[in-house]
């Protein structure tokens, strides 16, 4: 492998973009195919399939064996709300292998003391998303209950096609939320993607249990490849 290729690959990974390293086994020749270059690539069909499944492997071509090594962005959880549930969710998410970030403009909640060793943004989601937008490999959990904080990232998550979108709140709270999102112009299908009440239905009753329920839902959506619109039963992203 050329160092230039290695550096370019790591660059794509740092930018949270999918990339595939194509290696001809017999000759050892290699090339990097970036997300945006896939459709124009001679092996586009095989590469697409590899990206969809997330599984690297050897394909037989006219040139002999070719190894496709797919590098997808690591799954990331963004929690809107530096609340009690997030304090439990942050260490659990890390143990399960997810990157986690927490956003909450209320500085009393979003303090380093409450969230040691966690990527914490004590500012409005609008400002964070300008610098670090959501992508399909992001799970978004909105858990402040406050529409002023929750609604913007919720709409952004649905428009981006994030692989998981969940919102905390009672059925009554969610009914009001649905009204606001409908007024904001979101389709019923898009709104239906929100998991509310948030998390797997395990009767979770306290912050730690709710964090487990949320993580279970996120893992299910991740393993069922919900970052791809067709795997959500859509022809294209909402």
């Amino acid at each position: 492998m050329d160092r230039a290729l290695l550096e370019a690959l790591n660059g794509e990974r740092a930018q949270r973009r999918a990339a595939v390293v194509v290696t001809k086994i017999a000759s050892g020749t290699q090339r990097l195919v970036r997300e945006a270059e896939i459709t124009a690539d001679p092996l586009s069909e095989a590469i697409e399939k590899t990206i969809r499944s997330g599984k690297s492997g050897i394909v037989e071509t006219d040139d002999g064996e070719v190894f496709l090594n797919v590098h997808l962005p690591p799954a990331r959880i963004v929690a809107i709300g530096a609340v009690h549930i997030s304090q439990a969710l942050a260490p659990m998410a890390k143990i399960a292998g997810f990157d986690i970030e927490i956003i909450d403009p209320r500085t009393a909640f979003a303090s380093a003391e409450r969230f040691p060793n966690v990527a914490l943004h004590a500012t409005w989601p609008e400002d964070v998303l300008k610098e670090r937008p959501f992508d399909p490999y992001t799970a978004v959990c909105v858990i402040t209950h406050d529409p002023k904080i929750d609604d913007f990232p919720l709409i952004a998550a649905l428009k981006t096609g994030c692989f998981y979108v969940g919102a905390l709140g009672s059925r009554k709270t969610h009914a009001k939320r649905v009204e606001r999102l409908t007024e904001a112009g979101l389709s019923p299908a898009a709104i239906a993607r929100i998991e509310a009440p948030i998390g797997a239905d395990i009767g979770a009753a306290n912050p730690g249990e709710i964090a487990v329920a949320i993580l279970a839902s996120v893992i299910e959506a991740f393993r069922k490849r919900k970052m791809f619109a067709e795997r959500r039963g859509e022809t294209e992203a909402a």
Partner: peptide, 28 residues
């Protein structure tokens, strides 16, 4: 790997390209 190469160390990269049956680490 990138860091080691940047430090001028000679390095090799090993990659699992195919697995059959129960394999401990996935391809890639």
């Amino acid at each position: 790997a990138e860091r080691w190469a940047g430090e001028g160390r000679a390095i090799a990269l090993a990659t699992v390209v195919e697995t059959w049956g129960s394999a401990p680490r996935p391809t890639g």
